[in-house]
Simulated scan of single mutants.
Amino acid sequence: MKAMRVKNGLKISVIIMFIFMYGCKQSSYKEFVMADAVEVSESYEIVEEKEMTYKLNSNQTNVPLNLKIIKTASSRYKVKNIVTATRRIKIIAQKHGAYISDLRFQNDLYKKENRFTIKVPQKYFDTVMDSVNTVVDFVEYENITTKDVTEEYIDIETRLKTKLEVKARYETILRKNAKTVEDILLTEDKLRIIQEEIESAQGRLKYLTNKVAFSTIQIDLYEPVEYKAEPETYTKTFWDETKQGFANGWWYIKSFVVVLINLWPLLIIGLVTFFFVRKRLKK
């Protein structure tokens, strides 16, 4: 009887342990499934971000490449040494295929100032502006403007093409259909007018092409100098008076020689008279 109770107790214990282990496996399995769900959602969000980035980049590349833009800039900078800064900016300009169109230097009691204009290829416009900033000490102002002339450029090109076609038709009429003198003169007058319009359109296209190809950068450099008041009186040193004396003596010599040259007729008459009187006195 006692053995049966012990045996039944062992069976019950084994059953309870089996149920407990089975419950633990089910709970761990549920946690594992939840972790998989989280990983799937995170990867899905990453895919969406990549797709959005790709769409933005693809939209940014749709900018037209044949725009005709005229760029101009005006700037003013403070430098320590205006001669050194000007030389370094010239080297930067030459390195990028640019050239200086005009230059004006001014020196007064307060500052040294140098103003010049650079014509730079449009593709190097930003590069030259950034390079100039590395040379100067202080940027007082920088003004950059752009002008879109694409519409005007296309309009002139279209009109020019039409005028060339009209000119070709007038030339055909002049060769084949103009029989009388009046017809010939009338056709030639039309050709002259259309040729002037063509040359005007070609000149405007050339001007716009040059303005688009080369941007304009106007640069003002200034170097502050210590103010020195002008003296009210000035006392010459011995060396200054000596130099002035040599200069005055040379001026007197030149003046005397010039006077003799101007009086050469009187000198000749005087010499002739002197020898004539002397000869008479001897007799």
Rank of each mutant, 00 (worst) to 15 (best):
G9P: 01
K179H: 13
G249D: 10
S101K: 12
V40E: 02
Y222P: 02
I194R: 00
W250H: 14
E42T: 03
N114W: 04
R159L: 13
R280T: 11
A178D: 05
I118L: 12
I144F: 04
I219V: 15
Y252G: 03
K80M: 10
L160K: 03
I16R: 11
C24V: 14
I156C: 02
L164F: 13
T145E: 13
E226H: 13
I70S: 01
L267P: 07
I173S: 04
M129F: 09
P231W: 12
F238Q: 11
R88W: 00
T216H: 04
G23R: 05
D155V: 10
V272T: 08
F20D: 15
Y153T: 02
E165R: 00
T242C: 00
F214L: 04
K2D: 15
G9D: 08
F105V: 15
I46Q: 05
N8I: 11
K190A: 07
R88P: 01
Y99D: 11
E113T: 13
D137L: 12
F246H: 04
T216F: 03
K95F: 12
K163L: 15
Y207A: 05
K55E: 13
F18D: 11
I69P: 02
L185K: 00
Y252Q: 14
L267W: 14
T172M: 06
Q60N: 05
F275D: 11
Q195F: 04
N210C: 04
Y207H: 06
D130C: 02
S58Y: 09
S131W: 06
M17F: 05
Q218N: 07
I268F: 07
E151P: 01
E230Q: 05
R88Q: 11
D183P: 01
K112C: 10
F276H: 04
I19C: 07
E230R: 13
L267T: 10
